[in-house]
Design a protein around this nucleic acid. Structure first.
Lengths: 197, 197, 197, 197
DNA sequence: TATGAATGAGGGTTCATTCAT
DNA sequence: TATGAATGAACCCTCATTCAT
């Protein structure tokens, strides 16, 4: 399992193939055999690339968090205005979910309790960072008087619920584009928060 | 498996025990052995009361929908003012999630794709009824000029995401009571919807 | 399990119901549950009438032998002419098989090796009596010069094979009546045996 | 489960081991555990070589039909004289049964109703080919005036009953050789069929 | 007689994993 | 790297049987 450029490419291909299956069928509902088949390998062959099924899930989740942080968090966390920061964050996060860029993100959400011990703690810490970011952005917006005084925690989890639930109902190519959904949700949550004149 | 009053009691006890385990570990992650143990039965003894593992899940989900419809839907659907109706619905639904009254409701959400075929179609139809109820209530509120014009579908799924996501983060006995969460979310979503003077 | 007239009637009804199922599905392929259902009893209720599944099979087989001996053997064994005796025996035996009078006879043939130990020995002894009867009848016919000299054992088993195999292919109500089959087989076997003038 | 020369050898060994057990105990009476033990494998190891217990039976039966067609049918079907053809066929078929060359053939007979659906239909079609072959040979012999006029169907099934029943009573190494049995049966059936001068 | 409930043993099958080649 | 073969443990489920009521 040394990582040359070449093995890395193969490794990533395996992660993505596995992610696709686990996303569709769940972790417990997806067998190593199926993953191997989908990768065009034998079971034993697959084990040259992964350490164990659990480790595979860990890597998928970490990879999902990497993608999320790269495509969402790092793009918005330096926006000075906290309200603009949160709006941009919501729009970007919604697109991450809708565009299927990252089956991995869905897995992180759905297999929330599958991992245990240190691995779970590590993923949870990364998730918690996002929650803290949202909470502190809401708090900052309240402090600066940019939005009405609301409980930042309730606001953060409302934000997350709205955004993450999308994977359960949104079908690409349907009546609404994801841009419309994003605009609609931003409007729904933030218009109400702006203090009345 | 005829149902006398007595077997119904035992049957319901099994449903609830199984629901508790499946809620914690997932359907695929919970074995019949574990369920039997938790019921104080042997595997074979458990099979005296259930038809199959899949049928057990079906019954749990239907039971969960029964509870939901009894405790939430039927209590609010006759409120004439659509905004009051939606607010009451949100508050009641949040409490259903937070009070652990119904592990079954959580299972319905989490095991969304576990069932297949007719059983899945039946549960999905019951879930869809709720979505339609929310959508038409939002639409009615828009028509009557009680809220700003918003996409009823986006509003309905935002509502659902906020409410249902709670089971992932809310811990009873924490800093916030569920009443506070309910009030906070109602404020968050609906204050913003009321048209500005 | 005392036998009053009444229990005897019920007992026989159970034997026949069980025989029908075992005949169709085999002994190992028929569960006590199925037998109980077909009898309109619960499993536990059935056990008031039978001792065990194995004992049930023993009784079925013995009952089958009783019927066979009553309807075939005892009707022909006193015919003085050995050739007439064998011909009559063949015709009667064929009708026992074709008329479905006795699923039990079929079971005796098919479940030849299912029983073990003393029970098997007992049934085998009763079967052997029939073989001996056929062998000695053939031998007697040879001795008296009524048929060509043939090996009585080969003749007896040829007789049995022809007759018993019928249950695998004969369909009542088909092109041929069982009388025609009987006449045809008697002709086939015995015409050839009569010595040439 | 690709078949190299090597896996074929192992596969065939498994077929034969399984056939031996199923022949002795019946299909339902033989467990996968027993078969695995007899093969020197664990249950899971056995499943590396077979698809399912039912598929194993199907393969055994088809293998049995292959052997039968190779050793009996294909050797005699081109004999021009229909009587010689039938006599040769009987002798060869008897030896197939007596020499234990093929437990599989016995299984085909005994487990007549075990399979269902397409698999049963396929085996039955192969069996029916043999019956048709016998019937048409008898009919041809009648037409050519080589034997007395008899019902070809009754003759064919008499032939089969005599021959196939042998597996229930013949013990190799007993008083009679299988050659003697074969000669005796051919004489029994065909001498009588030759028309009297 | 009859029953609902229960059980230990075993059914066929799949699992993630290992290892000699 | 890759594979076929193998495994122990576990899977869901059914079996014949028993027993308090």
């Amino acid at each position: 399992m040394r990582r040359t450029d070449d093995t890395t490419a193969k490794h990533r291909a395996i992660l993505e193939t596995a992610a696709r299956l686990i996303c569709k069928q769940g972790y417990e509902g997806t067998s190593i055999q199926e993953i191997a088949d989908a990768c065009g390998l034998t079971k034993a062959g697959l084990y040259h690339h992964i350490e164990s099924k659990e480790q595979l899930l860990i890597e998928i989740m970490n990879y999902g968090m990497d993608v999320f942080e790269e495509r969402v968090l790092s793009e918005v966390e330096h926006i000075p205005d906290p309200v603009e920061r949160l709006k941009a964050c919501m729009a970007r996060n919604i697109k991450l979910v809708t565009r299927g860029w990252s089956k991995e993100v869905t897995i992180i959400l759905h297999e929330h309790d599958t991992l245990t011990g240190k691995a779970q703690a590590h993923i949870n810490a990364r998730k918690k960072r996002y929650v803290r970011f949202l909470e502190s952005s809401f708090a900052e917006a309240v402090e600066k008087g940019l939005i009405r005084p609301v409980d930042p925690t309730v606001a953060a989890f409302s934000f997350l619920g709205m955004v993450l639930w999308i994977y359960k109902w949104f079908k690409p190519g349907g009546k609404r584009t994801d841009d419309e959904v994003a605009a609609g949700m931003v409007d729904l949550l933030f218009t109400g928060l702006v203090p009345r004149s």
